[in-house]
Design a protein around this nucleic acid. Structure first.
Length: 545
RNA sequence: GGCCCGUUGGUCAAGCGGCUAAGACGACGCCCUCUCACGGCGUAAUCAUGGGUUCGAUUCCCGUACGGGUCACCA
């Protein structure tokens, strides 16, 4: 076979060589140990947890003086969605992940571009041509039906699937056969001619998993699709070589095709990047675990967390605790330190798929929000409400000081309240501040009938003085409790229930329900002061109707 | 089915040949307490399994089971 003739036949327009590109994309001038990595999403418009997961490369790159870039894998035109690139950039920025180079909203930056794969067609074809020249690639004219038939035959014969051995029908055809098909205008793909032996195991060092042994690839996989655009496999190898990527961080589902990537790097004589295969995030489905699915699981979408209103930093903190097993301990020891001061390392990453733990996220978020200032929470909640709860946003804007005071209840000090971890939870929690009136029929604390309740409230209103301190206020409540025949100390009532009508808990719960419509709420005195005297009296009075 | 990866309490996990097998979330109990939340103290709960190697295996090797992934002109 005359490979030169074949190469010219297949790629008559390609005049560049690999060396031209080697010169165009010189090795990066970076300090020793600098990590160059990237995320390379396909522009489907769906930004998911996995993207953020792999964005951990940003930490690695920036900790080592390296480069973190964004490449868009748009080789599958069918799935492309408008605005997807913007969505990725926005989402990443939202979580504090910024790119040094690559695709930007209005174009791209960096010396290793273009960073959109479809624009790199000539580069891929140049590499492809070089492979043809070396007898390592050949055209295949099989139709979809041919391949389907092959698959079925293999299934029936209980043989391994794939284009190899006797099934690789175009592997050794003559140049005349090829020319004939070409002249007919038959569509073709370019396949890799693999000399791999499945008996051979090749060692691959994984940055997360350590030494891996993978079976050598023996299938003639597709390099170039019929439109001349490369498959993921080929594009990945070409791009990560010429973009001088040192670390490829990706989901473990790529482990299955690692052999072909390694094979390509080796045969092209290029240095393999350090592969880092992360564990897949799982979820419980009935009684079994399964991979989080784009179609079925809303919590995989990053938008789910912004909608629920988890503060970005909280989500990021959760992700770090899942990603690096020693982060949690570090964070506990340095609660006030910026999470970016934590040194992220690959060897602290888990290798087994973990369940996504919403409860833990919630806990981390509560912890985080409890530490923030009322001002911060107000701003965060307002920003969220503007999108997801416009009415709340309007009220918050009109009565900013009122809401800040409400948010400030129980905040600060040694033991701040942890009432909510998300903006949506905060909205619910704060709802009673502007729900106008509660009725005696709404909620009924025990140990008092209607008349008794009216008497308690009336007497409370008579003694209520907004100039009182919290202590003075509580002293009055105690006095009232005693006068009415209730036990000031709940324990005493529990011990001898027959001696009292009830305990102070019944009295305060009544006040709480009259004021907030619920039995569980922060300090009554503080709430009253947020509401103001007029509103407090109005609610207590209205409750008695 | 072939191949690959994985398996420590309910969940996330530390451990890297010798420990009463950390810690966190959750659960439960007690304490604090005007309710709730917070906080404090405590309890229950884990090395999938069978063989090796070794004086000694959670740790190293092999098999089995189970779980997951992957076998496209999708990434």
């Amino acid at each position: 076979m005359d490979y030169t003739a074949l190469a010219e036949l297949l790629f008559p327009d390609i005049t560049k060589t690999i060396d031209d590109y080697e010169a165009l994309y010189p090795p990066r001038d970076l300090p020793d140990g600098a990590v160059v990595t990237r995320i390379a999403p396909s522009p489907t418009g769906f930004v998911h947890l996995g993207n953020l997961y792999n964005a951990i490369g940003e930490r690695l790159a920036h900790q080592t003086g390296g480069v973190f870039y964004l490449r868009i894998e748009d080789t599958d035109q069918k799935r492309e969605v408008d605005g997807a690139v913007e969505a990725v950039i926005d989402a990443m920025n939202f979580y504090g992940v910024h790119f040094d180079e690559g695709v930007t909203k209005d174009g791209e930056s960096g010396a290793y571009g273009p960073y959109r794969q479809r624009q790199r067609k000539e580069l891929y074809q140049t590499v492809a041509k070089s492979l043809v020249l070396r007898g390592l690639a050949y055209p295949c004219f099989c139709t979809e039906d041919d391949l389907k038939a092959m698959h079925d035959a293999q299934e029936a014969a209980k043989e391994n699937y794939g284009y190899y051995g006797k099934y690789a029908v175009w592997r050794d055809r003559t140049i005349e056969d090829i020319r004939a098909e070409l002249e007919k205008g038959t569509e073709w793909v370019l396949r890799f001619r693999s000399e791999g032996d499945p008996e051979h195991m090749i060692p691959v060092a994984d940055g997360i998993r350590g030494e891996l042994k993978v079976q050598e690839n023996y299938t003639d996989f597709v390099l170039l699709k019929s439109d001349g655009i490369p498959t993921y496999h080929f594009a990945h190898v070409c791009d990560d070589h010429f973009m001088r990527t040192t670390h490829v961080i990706r989901d473990e589902s790529w482990l299955a095709t690692l052999p072909i990537h390694v094979q390509l790097f080796d045969i092209l004589g290029w240095q393999r990047p350090v592969y880092c295969h992360t564990a897949t995030l799982m979820k419980m489905d009935g009684s079994s675990k399964r991979k989080l699915s784009k179609r079925k699981d809303p919590e995989l979408a990053l938008s789910y967390y912004s909608e629920a209103g988890y503060p970005q930093e909280a989500t990021w903190l959760y992700l770090l605790t899942v990603l690096n097993s020693n982060f949690e301990e570090w964070h506990l020891a340095n609660p006030d330190a910026n999470s970016r001061e934590f040194t992220f390392s690959l060897d602290k990453m888990s290798t087994s798929g973990s369940l996504f733990d919403l409860e833990k996220l919630d806990n981390i978020a509560k912890e985080y929000l409890a530490r923030q200032s009322a001002e911060f929470v107000y701003e965060g909640l307002l920003a969220w409400a503007k999108i997801y709860d416009p009415e709340l946003a309007a009220r918050m804007t009109a009565q900013a000081d009122f809401y800040k005071a409400a948010i400030n209840v129980g905040r600060g000090g040694e033991k701040p309240r942890k009432d909510y971890g998300s903006w949506s939870a905060a909205a619910k929690f704060l709802a009673f501040y502007d729900t106008a009136t509660f009725r005696i029929t709404d909620a009924c604390p025990e140990n008092a009938d209607g008349d008794m309740k009216r008497e308690i409230l009336t007497r409370y209103l008579n003694t209520l003085d907004f100039a009182d301190s919290q202590e003075e206020w509580f002293a009055k409540v105690k006095l009232l409790t005693e006068e009415l025949g209730y036990a000031v100390q709940p324990k005493k009532y529990k011990k001898n229930p027959e001696l009292y009508k009830g305990s102070i808990v019944d009295v305060t719960n009544l006040l709480r329900v009259a004021l907030t419509g619920r039995q569980n709420a922060p300090d009554i005195c503080e709430i009253s002061h947020v509401l103001g005297e007029a509103e407090t009296r109005r609610r207590l009075t209205a409750y008695m109707d």
